[in-house]
Computed example of a mutant assay.
Amino acid sequence: MNNDQMFKNRARVLDEDLAGRASTAGADALLAEIVLLEQEPALQRRRTPSPRRALFGLAAVATLAGAFVVVPSLFNGSEQVYASQAVTIDRDGDSYVFYITDGDPDPDELEKAFRKVGLDNITVKLIPVSPQQREPVVGFDKADPDARMSSTLSDCGKRVEGCLTAFSVTADIKGSAQFHLGRPAKPGEKYAYPADASWPGEALAGVKLQGRSVAEAARVVREHDLKVAYGLDWPLRGGNAGFRVERDVPASRIDPSWKVATAETYNDGVITLHVEPGAGATPPPGF
C-alpha cells in the first residue's frame, strides 16, 4: 500500500471504504489490501504521480484491518517520551506518534521501544517491497475495533532529524496489533506490495504503458517474456475522486481497445495491467 497515491490528496479512508481492498497506484500506498499481504483483493485508491524520496518502504501506505486516516500533521502539541536510533515516540493527546529513522529497522528493537511506552501487544513485521520504492509502506492489523492509526503528509524531518516516515496509533489500544513496515526486497524476492513496472531495475524499466490500448500493452509485456494479468479501475460513485480496483479480472472481460492506466509488478514474472473501463462498461456488485 503506490505510495503516488492517496496521501497527497489528504483523503479520509474508513473501514467500510477498505472492505476487500488492496492500495493506491505508485503512496498508490498506501494502505488495506493485506493481512500478510499474500493476496490483494479489490481496493480503493487515488492515482497520483510517485515522488522519489529516501527509501523506508514503498510508495504507498497499505492499510490492513482498521481505519487509516491521512492527516496534514501529527506534530501539534506532542511531547517526546522515547528515542533511539531507529524510532522516536511522542505522546500527543490520546495517541502515540512514531517517527521512524531507520530504513531497514530491527523489529525487535521497535517492539522494545513500543513496550517502553506501554504498547506491550504490538508486534512488527517487515515486508519486502521494491528497492526503487521511495515512499513508506505502513500496514496496520489489529484486533481492537476502536483503535485508529494515522499517517502524516508533513515532512516528519522537521520534528525528528532523519525521519523517514511518521504515523500515530491510539495510546490505549486493546488486544494484539501488528505493524507491517516495508523493507527493500532481496534480489529475486517477490514483493509483498506492488511496484510500478516501469521503474529502473524493474521488469519493464523505462517502458511506459500508460495510455496505450490493452492489446498493445499486452503485446509489449509478452515481448519481454512476462505474463499478463488484469485489474479494472472502477471510478468511485457519487462523483467522488479516485477509484476502486477489481483484481484478477479474466481477459475475456477486458476490451482490447480500453486504455491502460498503470502497470504493476510483484517481481514474480507477471505484469498486472490496470485498465480503465470504457464507456458503457458495467461494474460488478460492490463497485
Rank of each mutant, 00 (worst) to 15 (best):
residue 228 V to L: 04
residue 217 A to V: 07
residue 98 F to T: 00
residue 241 A to C: 00
residue 278 G to T: 08
residue 184 P to G: 05
residue 161 E to I: 10
residue 97 V to L: 08
residue 209 L to W: 09
residue 119 L to V: 03
residue 54 A to M: 11
residue 51 P to L: 12
residue 70 V to F: 07
residue 262 T to V: 10
residue 280 G to N: 00
residue 33 E to S: 13
residue 48 T to V: 07
residue 86 A to W: 13
residue 263 A to P: 03
residue 90 D to N: 12
residue 101 T to Q: 15
residue 256 P to D: 00
residue 221 V to D: 04
residue 257 S to W: 02
residue 73 S to G: 07
residue 181 L to R: 03
residue 206 G to T: 01
residue 242 G to S: 04
residue 57 G to P: 06
residue 19 A to I: 14
residue 259 K to Q: 10
residue 240 N to Y: 15
residue 239 G to E: 06
residue 207 V to T: 13
residue 182 G to T: 04
residue 178 Q to H: 13
residue 84 S to D: 12
residue 33 E to Y: 11
residue 220 V to A: 12
residue 145 P to E: 08
residue 138 V to C: 11
residue 265 T to K: 06
residue 283 P to S: 14
residue 237 R to D: 11
residue 136 P to V: 04
residue 228 V to A: 01
residue 189 E to I: 03
residue 78 S to L: 05
residue 123 T to A: 08
residue 123 T to Q: 08
residue 92 D to I: 09
residue 90 D to Y: 06
residue 63 T to M: 12
residue 213 S to R: 11
residue 181 L to P: 01
residue 66 G to L: 06
residue 54 A to R: 14
residue 283 P to R: 12
residue 28 D to Q: 14
residue 12 R to G: 00
residue 79 E to K: 14
residue 41 P to A: 13
residue 193 Y to N: 09
residue 213 S to G: 15
residue 230 Y to D: 00
residue 7 F to M: 09
residue 60 A to Y: 04
residue 178 Q to K: 15
residue 220 V to P: 07
residue 110 L to I: 12
residue 158 K to R: 05
residue 176 S to C: 07
residue 273 L to V: 06
residue 122 I to E: 02
residue 36 L to G: 12
residue 32 A to C: 06
residue 40 E to A: 15
residue 113 A to S: 11
residue 112 K to H: 13
residue 186 K to P: 01
residue 259 K to R: 15
residue 255 D to F: 03
residue 26 G to C: 03
residue 165 T to M: 06
residue 280 G to M: 08
residue 184 P to W: 04
residue 36 L to M: 05
residue 116 K to F: 13
residue 86 A to K: 15
residue 207 V to Q: 09
residue 27 A to Q: 12
residue 127 I to R: 09
residue 82 Y to S: 11
residue 74 L to A: 03
residue 103 G to P: 09
residue 268 D to V: 07
residue 203 A to G: 08
residue 178 Q to T: 15
residue 34 I to Q: 11
residue 276 E to M: 06
residue 104 D to T: 10
residue 91 R to G: 01
residue 17 D to V: 08
residue 13 V to R: 10
residue 154 S to H: 04
residue 285 P to R: 14
residue 201 G to H: 03
residue 108 D to R: 14
residue 235 P to E: 02
residue 193 Y to E: 11
residue 270 V to T: 15
residue 15 D to L: 00
residue 52 R to F: 01
residue 83 A to G: 02
residue 216 E to H: 07
residue 202 E to A: 02
residue 166 A to W: 01
residue 257 S to A: 13
residue 261 A to F: 04
residue 178 Q to F: 10
residue 61 V to D: 03
residue 106 D to Q: 14
residue 62 A to S: 13
residue 221 V to G: 11
residue 193 Y to A: 13
residue 22 A to T: 08
residue 111 E to S: 13
residue 58 L to E: 13
residue 126 L to I: 07
residue 274 H to E: 12
residue 6 M to L: 14
residue 99 Y to T: 00
residue 65 A to C: 00
residue 173 I to F: 02
residue 280 G to E: 02
residue 186 K to Q: 10
residue 250 P to H: 10
residue 93 G to T: 05
residue 261 A to I: 09
residue 15 D to M: 00
residue 62 A to G: 11
residue 275 V to W: 03
